[in-house]
């Protein structure tokens, strides 16, 4: 099938998915969560003012009209303003996405490159001391809670040794660099363990395949086998794992951002839930759903690039 036709057809799935997502959000918010005006008005809320606010927010209209509004915002991406902060949601997201991305993108790339390279290396030495030692390190890294890395890293490297900034963020290149160095290192430490173990499993799955044995029998060098043949064949799970993480990079890292004072999107959904900020919850859910679909399509297309045997259907 033509790539464009395939992409178009897959993107059409967005429509039913969004309608469903809207219905779920609507039900969750209007049926389960109840009246948001308690929270929005704060400690001095009165029944009268709550009723007035419900009216202003359009919560007293027919349920179908409210659902239609929700659907409209999902397809136009016009999410309006936050109920809690009165800020334009599109600005909240665009302004928060940059700091989040400056933290997560370098972390993600470095961690992925290191993890894939190391996974090939440990597969080369599979069963040996280096392999065992690396796995031991990975498991040790994964056993320590993320908070411990953050607390220790900030206290020891930033405060005691003064190697990094304790916290903060400056917008614009290169001003943000001093502030993201330690958070990026912590991000890598947090993600490299599980990533490496996953990639190692993927590579090892391939290493025992018949074609590898054949290649070896033909006298090909181990390096050539690993980097040319094994890596190529392991690309499908690797691509799936990598691409599907990309949309979530925008959402940042809640704990790291919060401890290092990085004004990213890490806490945006959580804060919105805590303050019954429906428009923000709605925006984040819809955007996540759309991103998930789009990156799913990208993954599929990449499959055909990394493995010509795959046909789009």
């Amino acid at each position: 099938m033509n790539l464009w036709v395939y992409t178009f057809r897959r993107l059409l799935y967005v429509i039913p998915v969004l309608l469903g997502v809207c219905l779920i959000i609507y039900l969750l918010f209007n049926v389960v969560a109840g009246d948001p005006t308690h929270i929005l008005l704060g400690k001095h809320a009165t029944a009268k003012q709550m009723a007035e606010l419900r009216h202003e927010l359009g919560l007293d209209r027919h349920w179908f009209m409210q659902y239609l509004d929700l659907v409209k915002s999902a397809f136009t991406f016009d999410f309006g303003r936050s109920w809690s902060t009165k800020q334009l949601i599109s600005s909240m997201i665009s302004e928060g996405a940059i700091p989040s991305l400056t933290l997560t993108v370098p972390g993600f790339f470095i961690s992925t490159i290191c993890a894939v390279s190391l996974s090939l290396l440990v597969s080369f030495y599979r069963g040996g001391l280096f392999d065992k030692f690396t796995i031991l390190i990975c498991i040790s890294l994964m056993s320590i809670p993320s908070l411990a890395y953050i607390l220790f890293g900030q206290y020891f490297f930033a405060y005691k040794l003064g190697m990094f900034e304790i916290s903060g963020y400056d917008f614009g290149f290169p001003h943000f660099i001093p502030y993201i160095q330690l958070p990026v290192l912590i991000w890598i430490t947090l993600t490299i363990g599980p990533d490496l173990r996953f990639y190692r499993t993927v590579v090892l799955d391939e290493v025992y395949q018949d074609y590898v044995r054949t290649a070896r029998a033909k006298g090909l060098g181990e390096k050539l086998i690993l980097f040319k043949h094994v890596l190529k064949n392991a690309m499908i799970p690797i691509v799936t794992y990598v691409v599907i993480q990309i949309p979530f990079l925008i959402l940042g890292a809640l704990l790291i951002e919060s401890f290092f004072g990085i004004p990213g999107l890490g806490g945006i959904t959580l804060n919105a839930i805590n303050s019954s900020d429906f428009p923000v919850i709605r925006a984040m859910t819809i955007l996540s759903a759309v991103a998930y679909i789009i990156f799913g399509v990208i993954t599929d297309i990449l499959y055909t690039v990394v493995d010509p045997r795959v046909r789009l259907n």
Partner: peptide
């Protein structure tokens, strides 16, 4: 005005005189 939700960075920044 620095907005720091967590107490550790607030405390460490204070100790450093920031």
């Amino acid at each position: 005005v620095d907005i720091l939700v967590e107490s550790q960075p607030r405390w460490l920044n204070f100790q450093k005189g920031r």
